[in-house]
Design a binder for these strands. Structure first.
Length: 585
DNA sequence: GTTTTGCGAAACTATGTAGTCAGCTACAT
């Protein structure tokens, strides 16, 4: 079930789109978009607010507040229904076809009555678009190509897939003569969980050799656009990559522009306008004289706007501008702050590498501590027994002895934990007495995802109340693009975590990234602590931590919010939920 | 339509590139 705020945000966004498509007042469309964003990002449940409460949300006035109340009272909003009656849903969907926007979609609907992709394809084949003003043979061809792309996939890809391609392209472009600087930007630099296209920025005096090298990369399947300043290609796997070449002294302004987000850029450019300046990818200019003021570094650009440099992961127009103006921007947790990984597996259960290899790889990463947390026996397919886990513990204690005295930070302590299974009623593996023997326990839901909201909420809360459960693993159990998050009252779970001293995991696996940024922002308001873990099932997975850290940053977390940045002594005090445990290994 | 200003009316509009069709549209952040 979608969060009520998200339902309303989607409805208001649709209304804004419909206003744009029908050629309505541009200001009005913009206001609805702003209100949709504000409500989507609002911390309180808007279904429980009255008109007065709703009006306290920025960019929500009387009219929109009343529409929200109407929506929750009737299940629909008459103004939206009126526009829906004029413009079939299909017309809005037509704009999902690449190269077909609202203007052309409306013309196609009004002149030919077409509102589905199939009808449109037929009309093109029957050459019925030819007579419309603004439509030529190339447009027909592009629309057909766009329909093909839409049907073949066009989906966003997981961040690790995009990252490895981007790093490869950056390395390739950096080799080209004349390339002074090269970096990836866009949603990848902002560490969004999925990536729609890859943005590569190059600083060079002469763009042509770089543009040519770019279009000649081995995995280019199609050159979408090929200009002097910008070239776009599609890879053989269907991912679009945009290359932008700017003069070297525009680097800072160009990075600022190309990193986005779009909403963040609109805000910064608005701020420039208010100061009688103009901000573009080439620099910050005086509007009247046209004189360039700054452009070399992002810091220069932000500073001239009266802002501190804003970390890319915060640039989503979620309050970072206001916080920056107030001097209250958080210092986001960094990968180097992480002292240890608290959720990892070995080949004793479903991991691929033996304990010794995982521990050695962890030490290589410079960790001060590292926890092994294989699955308990309740996940029957893992074939765990008391004997097997106790034998592992013995070996962990030996390794702790070995590694405790060496390593990059004066020794790495090896902790013995487990990943417990939260059963349908909230129970976990093993007896309390047996669980006493672990240094820490992660507990996660692995099955029975569709119990219903109330039962699932009770289940999570019960796990939090268990004195042996320290961390809730991959809390919503989603798999990006494959399995939705469980329907649970997250605010109730967050409150339980804060009350019981249970941390929430930010699982760094690119398939999961769970919790996600928006949930982290909400959980943080409850005073919850977090653990950024890799959930590594192989040595190479330990490096996924970078994505978890990026996600934590997007949730505005600082070092202090994340328990595995803490020194071991402080971590141990946190892990001792009842305050009764004696100091362990 | 909301916010700001000062109670009805004014102000609010991001910027630039490439493509395609003959002035815009779509798209990128």
């Amino acid at each position: 079930m979608a969060r009520p705020n998200d339902e309303v945000a989607a409805l208001l966004q649709e209304y804004a789109d419909l206003i744009s498509i029908t050629g309505g007042d541009a200001f009005k469309a913009r206001v609805y978009e702003k209100a949709a964003r504000a409500i989507g990002g609002h911390h309180a449940d808007v279904s429980k607010l009255d008109v007065k409460g709703l009006k306290e949300i920025p960019n929500v006035g009387k009219s929109i507040a009343e529409k929200v109340v109407e929506y929750f009272a009737n299940g629909s909003v008459s103004a939206v229904e009126d526009l829906r009656a004029k413009i079939p849903a299909g017309v809005r969907q037509l704009t999902a076809i690449p190269t077909l926007g609202p203007k052309k979609a409306l013309v196609i609907y009004q002149e030919l009555g077409i509102s589905t992709t199939e009808e449109l394809a037929d009309a093109i084949h029957e050459e019925r678009l030819r007579d419309l003003k603004g439509f030529g043979p190339k447009t027909e061809e592009n629309i057909l190509h766009g329909i093909g792309l839409l049907q073949s996939s066009g989906d966003r890809v997981l961040i690790d897939v995009a990252m490895s391609l981007a790093e490869d392209i950056v390395a390739e472009m950096s080799q080209v003569t004349g390339c002074e600087r090269c970096a990836y930007a866009g949603s990848l630099r902002r560490v969004r969980e999925t990536i729609g296209d890859i943005d590569i920025l190059v600083a060079a005096k002469k763009p042509q050799p770089l543009m040519r090298a770019f279009t000649e990369l081995p995995y280019v399947s199609e050159v979408i656009a090929h200009g002097e300043k910008k070239t776009s290609i599609r890879t053989t796997k269907g991912l679009q990559v945009d290359l932008r070449v700017v003069p070297p002294d525009s680097w800072g302004a160009a990075m600022q522009y190309f990193t986005g987000s779009k909403a963040h850029n609109i805000r910064t450019r608005e701020m420039a306008v208010h100061k009688k300046l103009k901000l573009s990818e080439y620099g910050l200019f005086d509007t009247e004289t046209g004189e360039k003021i700054v452009s070399r570094t992002e810091e220069d650009v932000y500073a001239r706007l009266g802002l501190p440099w804003i970390p890319p992961t915060l640039r989503e127009d979620r309050g970072e501008i206001e916080a920056g103006l107030r001097g209250e921007l958080p210092e986001p947790v960094q990968e180097k702050d992480i002292r240890g990984d608290l959720h990892t597996h070995t080949d004793l259960t479903d991991g691929l590498a033996p304990l010794e290899e995982m521990v050695a790889a962890a030490a290589e990463r410079g960790y001060a501590y590292y926890a092994i947390t294989d699955h308990g026996p309740d996940m029957a397919m893992q074939r765990m027994t008391d004997e097997r886990i106790l034998a592992q513990r013995e070996r962990v204690r030996e390794l702790d002895g070995e590694y405790g005295r060496r390593g990059k930070r004066g020794g790495m302590r090896v902790l013995h934990g487990a990943e417990l299974n939260i059963g349908p009623d909230g129970d976990v593996d093993w007896t309390p007495e047996f669980l006493d023997g672990f240094d820490l326990c992660v507990a996660s839901v692995h099955s029975h995802f569709n119990q219903g909201r109330d039962a699932l909420t009770r289940r999570f809360v019960r796990a939090c109340e268990n004195p042996h459960v320290n961390i809730i693993g991959h809390p919503t159990t989603r798999l990006i693009g494959k399995r939705p998050a469980v329907d649970v009252d997250l605010d109730a779970v967050f409150a339980a975590c804060a009350r019981t001293g249970t941390a929430l995991e930010i699982n760094s696996h690119p398939d999961r990234l769970d919790l996600r940024d928006e949930d982290i922002l909400r959980a943080r308001r409850h005073g919850v602590r977090f653990a950024v873990d890799s959930d590594a099932h192989a040595v190479i997975h330990l490096a996924y931590l970078r994505y978890g850290v990026g996600t934590a940053q997007r949730g505005w977390l600082t070092k202090d919010d994340v328990i595995n940045t803490w020194p071991l002594a402080r971590l141990r005090r946190f892990l001792d939920k009842t305050g009764h445990r004696t100091e362990g290994a």
